[in-house]
Amino acid sequence: MEDGVTATQVVFWILAVVMLISAIGVVTAGNIVYAALFFIASLAGVAGIYLILTVEFIALVQLLIYGSAVVILILFALMLTRARERPQALFGRSRPLGIAASLGLLAALIGGIVATTWTTPESSAAIQPVGLQAIGDAIFTIWIVPFIIVGVLLSIALDGAIMLASPDEDDN
């Protein structure tokens, strides 16, 4: 695409950098609550990129589900497990190995992505925003089975989480 540097590209890179830096914050922060806050920033960056990609629906879902529900859940769990009392024990012993492995993964991924010729449209003008109605139609026709499965899955997760977390009469 030879469109030159456009405003969207600049915004994209800003968002990308914010997102990646916050992500690094998530995996390196010495305090769990900070990590959770970095996580929120990272999620917001991802949502922004969704907006740039013109899929408002997914951006909305991202903000609603991750931005509110998941983050609140995580903060609750953090409070319940009082993890702040153990700030020294956040990294495992095999840390260098983990870093090396993930750097290897990164190199392989980037190498593969760069070497691959992806099918792309001739110009960005060809990219049409996907409407909400089209998504809805698709979910309830082609993807009806996955949709039902997700429904069952959510109820299982709910049921299981309640059952496991709820106090038992033998609890002390």
Partner: peptide
């Protein structure tokens, strides 16, 4: 569909493995 079915299976197993709470 395959991925979601796999998760359905896995979620059930995550709970079942920890069932002896």
């Amino acid at each position: 569909t395959a991925y979601l079915s796999l998760e359905l299976l896995s979620f059930s197993f995550y709970i079942l493995v920890g069932f002896n709470k």
